[in-house]
Design a protein around this nucleic acid. Structure first.
Lengths: 108, 108
DNA sequence: CACCGCTATGCTGGATCAAACATAATGAGG
DNA sequence: CCTCATTATGTTTGATCCAGCATAGCGGTG
């Protein structure tokens, strides 16, 4: 038996969660939505939809994108995107550890 | 912006979570699945299904039930049910508080 | 013996959420 | 001007979960 969990940020509606976190992280690393999506084993369509929705709800751009050109185009995080990514990474780590610790204390 | 979260216990599959917790708590308080379900604003059908599934996966009875009689019947927690209820209540509180605290630290 | 409140289940239609498919457009380079 | 990798969307199909309806049986009580 083990504990599972998920958390996310809301502002009325779902705004930022695990999926978006991993996606941004991978885009930051690889420089394109497409490659990030593939590396996370999801479709470009899905990744793009998630990003679009989040940006709409945040009222803020997370990515700046380019179309065409040598590499076909690409994406990189805006300052707001980077801010979220880092904040969330830290939060996520601490929250996850706390949950695991509480689980250990009470079960097992 | 606020944080939302859920957690649950798995043993391969989902075994015990928020829904079941509230349900057990209410059954413990009221002495019947039916009344517990109504007070939680869910159908008896739904409550019963949840309980049944959980018991199946745990391989353990959480309730002992009576059918017929003066009050029509009723349900009360087995020792295993009480054990889960109390453990989970404590775990849940601590985990929730830890998550909120981490959220405060990193956002807001 | 009819009634009441409860346990105990089956079934079916809807609703929501994800996956798959399709297509347009961009801009550097051969 | 054609190819290539990418952004950018619409649409459609499928799958899965949830809600509501229906029904049966039990055992006190009036």
């Amino acid at each position: 038996m083990r504990v599972r969990y998920k958390f996310w940020l809301e502002d009325g509606e779902h705004v930022f969660g695990e999926g978006l976190f991993e996606l941004l992280q991978e885009i930051d690393r690889r420089g394109s939505i497409n490659q990030a999506a593939r590396s996370l084993n999801m479709s470009y369509r899905q990744a793009w939809g998630q990003l679009k929705k989040a940006e709409g709800r945040l009222g803020e751009r997370l990515l700046s994108t380019r179309v065409g050109g040598e590499t076909g185009g690409g994406a990189e995080l805006t300052p707001a995107g980077k801010w979220f990514l880092q904040r969330y990474r830290q939060f996520r780590r601490e929250a996850g550890e706390a949950i695991e610790a509480a689980f250990q204390r009470h079960f097992s």
